[in-house]
């Protein structure tokens, strides 16, 4: 029994939490799992798991039906950022959440990098030639000319098979109705998706919201460098509004546009 097990057991016993969301290995596969007071011995099977799932999204689901429940959650840095975003948007009550933190993160949103989620394999030669490498940093993508950039992104978007996985897995996507599915905004029933609006609409929604956990890119069957795209829009939000999703907690970016606003016009 390690320290994590001890903490979780203690919390459950002391009724600090009613359930704990973590992982457990089943047939060699780590799966998201709930640990409860009733099955407290099961906590010994709690693992950190290399495979990451949007645990906080699961927590939000629980909250929507059982708002009284106190939830413990295994939180990598990305989970913690996602939780902060969900607090901001009233999808979870911070009063009801306790986290067991794991110190790891490959995102530039945090500096240290001992995350179990490692950098992706380097891209193949064709992708380097006509697409966008997944590991590129926004500054590196900016060396492409506007036209070149558009062409390369169009190639990436062209590959999309419209699984909506990027949205479905996204821990901070919670809308009951999704703009991506508004047929008047984005044409339906066809592959490829309408380029580039499908991905740009999603990018717009990720501005000030994406916490760079990388789950979308993991889930993308077409290997589209979505993280880079959302990092770009997030940088704009940070520059224009000085708002960093997931790290600036407590306020929605809309509240920042509060009573006294002096917006200095800046070029994008």
């Amino acid at each position: 029994m390690n320290m994590m097990h001890e903490i979780v057991k203690e919390w459950l016993e002391q009724e600090k939490i009613d359930l704990f969301i973590g992982y457990k290995v089943v047939d060699g596969h780590p799966l998201p799992c709930f640990f409860t007071r009733e099955n407290i011995d099961d906590v010994d099977n709690l693992v950190e798991s290399k495979a990451r799932y949007p645990l906080e999204k699961i927590a939000a689901k629980v909250y929507s039906t059982h708002p009284e429940m106190k939830i413990g959650i295994l939180a990598r840095d990305c989970n913690q950022r996602a939780l902060n975003v969900l607090y901001v948007w009233n999808q979870l009550d911070p009063e009801k959440i306790e986290t067991v933190g794991i110190n790891c993160c490959p995102s530039p949103a945090r500096e240290h990098a001992d995350c179990s989620y490692l950098e992706r394999e380097p891209s193949g030669p064709l992708k380097t030639l006509i697409g966008i490498e997944n590991n590129l940093k926004p500054e590196q993508a900016e060396v492409y000319s506007q036209e070149e950039r558009f062409k390369r992104w169009s190639y990436e978007f062209e590959k999309c098979i419209k699984c909506y996985g990027c949205r479905n897995i996204c821990p901070v996507c919670f809308c009951k109705e999704c703009s991506l599915e508004h047929s008047d905004l984005i044409k339906k029933g066809e592959l490829p998706v309408e380029i580039p609006i499908f991905h740009l609409v999603r990018a717009v929604h990720m501005a000030g919201r994406c916490i760079d956990c990388g789950l979308c890119e993991d889930a993308c069957p077409a290997n589209i460098p979505l993280r880079l795209l959302y990092r770009e829009v997030n940088q704009i939000t940070a520059r224009l509004f000085d708002y960093r999703a997931g790290t600036d907690s407590g306020q929605s970016p809309f509240s920042i546009l509060g009573e006294n606003v002096t917006l200095e016009p800046m070029s994008l």
Binding site: S123, G124, P125, L126, G131, K159, P192, P221
Partner: peptide, 29 residues
């Protein structure tokens, strides 16, 4: 459209350097 996950593998292969030939009466995706 019919086996999207396999299509993903094909695109990965392609990006890794494989050649792709498509023969189909329709101009498929």
């Amino acid at each position: 459209e019919t086996h999207p996950i396999i299509a993903g593998r094909i695109m990965t292969a392609k990006e890794k350097g494989a050649k792709l030939i498509v023969a189909d009466p329709r101009n498929i995706h």
